[in-house]
């Protein structure tokens, strides 16, 4: 019933981690990617006049960078990439609901017209 040999133990318990360290390389590369994005984010502060995000494009660029970081962490570090799809659905249900409801609410305050968000 229980398998005792190391060799034919399939990848495991949690979600299919591997015996060697290849998954760890993915994690390190992901962290590097996130670090680069963070540096770009901070660069928008250090050099606000950089042509890519001058003036009205600044907020969209920041929001895109933020979203990419957010979903990268959720996808790789939180294992949604490797896990059952139902977890992704449940989490995104809450996330999408929060985003939609709160954007609708802020819209009723008409805060987008005060120049706060470009």
């Amino acid at each position: 019933m229980t398998v005792t040999s190391h060799d034919n133990v399939p990848t495991t318990v949690l979600d299919g981690a591997v015996k060697d360290y290849s998954r760890d390389k993915v994690y390190v590369m992901t962290a590097l990617f996130l670090a680069v994005l963070t540096i770009i984010e901070v660069f928008t502060y250090a050099a606000p006049d950089f042509p890519v995000w001058a003036d009205e494009l600044l907020v969209p660029v920041l929001m895109i960078l933020m979203a990419v970081k957010f979903f990268t962490i959720v996808y790789v570090f939180m294992h949604l990439k490797f896990d059952k799809p139902i977890l992704t659905k449940l989490f995104y249900m809450g996330l999408v609901l929060a985003v939609l409801v709160y954007i609708a609410m802020l819209s009723t305050f008409r805060i987008w017209h005060n120049g706060q968000h470009g």
Partner: peptide, 25 residues
Amino acid sequence: TKLGMWLFLASECLLFGGLITTYLL
């Protein structure tokens, strides 16, 4: 436990969403 944690995190989105919205306002 894992399913429960994910549900809790989904719910936390709305908690932090409320506070972020307050900040934006």
